[in-house]
Amino acid sequence: MSDIILSATGLTKTYQQRSGRFGFGSTVVKALDNVSLQLKQGTTLAVVGESGSGKSTLARCLLQLLPLDAGQVIFEHVDLATLRGDALRAARRHLQMVFQDPFASLNPRMRVGEIVGEGLLIHGMGSAAERRERVLRMLQRVGLTAADMLKFPHEFSGGQRQRIGIARALVLEPRVVVCDEPVSALDVSIQAQILLLLKELQQEMGLSYLFISHDLRVVRHVADEVVVMHHGRIVEQGGVEQLYSDPQQEYTRNLLNSIPGRHRAAEATN
């Protein structure tokens, strides 16, 4: 029934790390070790795993923001590594990313209206007035206002910056969005609002998400399928319900058992 929109085979990525007493030596770290996954059109695939397990590296490699050592990424039946020029630009529009560190990814010298509208401009989508209108509507959907369009990133709180990054990706109406910890800095109400927005857009436009999160409560809400990463490898994958009810790996069980507040919360309801 569902088509595969993005598929990765055998992704491998190593980093050189400085080591030794003076940092002149170097060791090679495998951040991705033969990772393969498939994202079905119109669904959400969550990636969970320990800090440092390679999730952000995977995200960057999928979008060709980092060169791979080995492996292949196929987007809508085309190998991304073979694309050049206009074809690459067109693919880029449809493959968007929400970055983990919102502040570092927002140009401090641009106003928020420009930041969110930049992609529309680059891809020549709509007249100036239409672009402005789209930017405004998207900002409002993430809980920001028209007045915010004129401000600079440093004038916003952590959670507001995270929402600017989300608006920037979604305004392009892409086909796939890779979200790296998209709601971790948001209060629980705005978190719910954003998660509902992502679902709405999924229904409206058939969007597909690769959703990186360490919060299993959130993952349960949004994901159709889950992959669990550990030391650069996928150690477990499957449907979200199955993973919750019957985790196969010790590490996955640990993740489920360490959800904070489970103990006191259970006491409070008794």
Partner: peptide, 28 residues
């Protein structure tokens, strides 16, 4: 957390996802 007094606190606590992630999402 147990007996919130202010309407905002109550509304915010209503949005907290449960540990199982089964409760429907509902913003304030």
């Amino acid at each position: 957390l147990g007996k919130p007094r202010h309407p905002y606190t109550r509304a915010l606590l209503d949005c907290v996802p449960d540990a199982e992630g089964r409760k429907p999402l509902k913003p304030i």
